[in-house]
């Protein structure tokens, strides 16, 4: 359901229209990409179809027409049960980083150089996020940024472990050759 539950969470504080919802989402997740307006509306439509939200009023203040949405009882129940249920811990889908590294290692090319450059990129992104985190004042927003930072940290540590394992394997083969 993804972003829909976030919207339900925002609406739990009181009725809001689409634009407010988008702004609240972006504020809560400063480290992720801003949500496109279209996605907000398609999500709202789906929620309405499933009777989780309802239109309470349509206002028109000079500009375009604005529809105000509110949580239904069913929506409230859905939100509560979503918050109560735990998320599965993985498995994590292999992303491009993993695919590239593993392929490079299988190819037997010098992966160390690539790993080092990748580290620089990750560290640069982390630096940006830390600056972003320092600039937002909301605690929950900081927590959301932490999540991305910690994932970058995990990536970095994985890269480091990969480099160490490659070095270790080299040593073992060399020692094996020396013995033979």
């Amino acid at each position: 359901m993804g972003v829909s539950h976030v919207l339900l969470g925002v609406l739990a504080d009181g009725p809001a229209h689409g634009y407010d919802l988008k702004r609240a989402h972006d504020e809560r997740f400063p480290a992720t990409k801003a949500m496109p307006y279209g996605q907000v509306y398609s999500a709202l439509q789906r929620l309405q179809r499933d009777h989780l939200v309802e239109i309470v009023e349509t206002v028109q203040e000079g500009g375009p027409e604005r529809t105000v949405y509110a949580l239904t009882d069913a929506g409230r129940t859905e939100l509560a049960s979503w918050l109560e249920a735990t998320e599965p811990a993985g498995p994590y889908a292999a992303d491009e980083l993993v695919r590239k590294t593993v392929t490079a290692l299988w190819r037997g090319t010098d992966a160390a150089d690539y790993l080092q450059r990748q580290r620089t990129v990750h560290l640069g992104r982390m630096r940006e996020l830390l600056a972003l985190q320092a600039s937002v004042s909301d605690t929950t927003a900081r927590i959301a940024v932490d999540h991305t930072i910690f994932h970058l940290d995990a990536d970095l540590r994985w890269l480091e472990a990969a480099a160490a394992r490659v070095a270790d394997a080299h040593q073992v083969t060399h020692r094996g050759e020396a013995k033979a």
Partner: peptide
Amino acid sequence: DNRVAARADREIFLR
């Protein structure tokens, strides 16, 4: 700690 390293302007990586 990578998060500490990221607060620096520059990283010197030793191996």
